[in-house]
Write a protein that binds this DNA or RNA. Structure first.
Lengths: 213, 213
DNA sequence: CTTTATATACATACGCGAAGGTATCTTTAC
DNA sequence: GTAAAGATACCTTCGCGTATGTATATAAAG
């Protein structure tokens, strides 16, 4: 085939990404063949190599779609103005992100690929690196919020901002893995919402807190 | 080569499993070649096919090593006799399992393979199935313990045994993922111990608990 | 106690398809 | 006219499955 208009080329690119999303999900990244991706997208491998160079390039381009999602969570976690309580603000942001995941099947597929259809070995190092950085940034945002809450006297001294952020991050991650694996044996936003509020109500400063152990 | 004595054959089998552990970890399950596994074990592909039929068989045999580990956690979670508090008992069992993971690099490698070096696609269904069952059993044990605690009046009514088990399971899983990915940026047993006790001290029945939101 | 028979525990060789990289060709937009 | 946007063809590598070879452990038979 011949040269397409720029818009058509962009459409081809998007079609390839959509196809990769589907094929990677079904076959796993390592077992997926570029030829199948191309066929699903309605073109040939020539187009794949033109737009993404090789399989890793294609994968990284897909990954960027997910990074956009994570950026959104980070945006939500930014304390906009002086809202009443940073803790409540965090809970709302997290719940919102979970609702997004539930409502947007494409995001769920992307997350599934990155967490369960991909082997993070040496050649995938750039992807792993990006993922770790994104995670660290989210944790940093959480810590900031806890820091603010602590300064407002809303946190129990039992929980340092650092530990609270680590706890919350692990908690959310754990729920995400369970949810992705179990094919919706529970509603993500519901349980995460409940869990996060439960944790926050516990970490919040209260005078008569019984100490366990 | 010729027929070996039964003991020698078992040694070969173990050597192959050890080699698979190493190669799967480095290359990922999908990209690993049976030939490399055999070479690392000091034999040829003939031995691999003899002992495990194919790659999936080899993988499942490796997986069984990890299942033995999970069985150990389940054993620990069994309430032995009438120990004082089921909650404390759970915390001890979990902490013990985490210490095991830290001290036993082989277990860590196995868990890394199963969680980060393996793409769970259709052909891996038997492996995925086994993993889900093992997880469910652990959750069931947790729920039983929470049930017992509730009957002894040790649980806040805000936490049903079901939800508490889901929460705790997700929490531990989240920490495990973070730990495996981050190359020990925190000590697993320390943080999990802290987190679990923190959660339990929160879920425990106490009269003057402030309700958040 | 031999001898024989058979299953065992691999090694070697062959065949083959699948998959990725690269080079070249073809149009067409700009 | 030139470079973009792909299609097509070719080549090579890799890795799996299978088939077959082979020497020995082992147990039964004599």
């Amino acid at each position: 085939m011949a040269r397409r208009t720029k818009q058509e080329a962009d459409e081809t690119r998007e079609a390839l990404l959509d196809a990769a999303e589907q094929v990677f999900l079904e076959r796993g990244v390592a077992r997926a063949s570029l030829d199948e991706v191309a066929r699903v997208a309605g073109c040939t491998r020539g187009a794949v190599h033109w737009h993404f160079r090789d399989k890793l390039g294609l994968f990284l381009a897909l990954d960027e779609r997910l990074l956009l999602l994570q950026d959104e969570l980070k945006r939500r976690l930014l304390c906009n103005g002086t809202t009443n309580s940073p803790l409540r603000h965090m809970a709302d942001a997290i719940t919102g992100a979970m609702v997004d995941l539930e409502e947007n099947p494409r995001r769920r597929r992307l997350l599934t690929i990155m967490l369960q259809r991909c082997e993070y070995v040496a050649e995938m190092a750039p992807a792993l690196q990006r993922r770790r950085e994104a995670d660290q940034q989210v944790r940093a945002k959480l810590r900031e919020q806890f820091q603010r809450a602590a300064e407002m006297g809303e946190m129990s001294e039992a929980w340092s901002p650092e530990r609270a952020a680590l706890f919350l991050h692990a908690l959310i991650g754990g729920f995400l893995y369970e949810w992705l694996r179990g094919e919706a044996e529970f509603t993500l936003s519901g349980e995460v919402n409940n869990a996060v509020r439960g944790f926050l109500s516990c970490a919040v400063a209260k005078p008569g807190a019984a100490t366990f152990y």
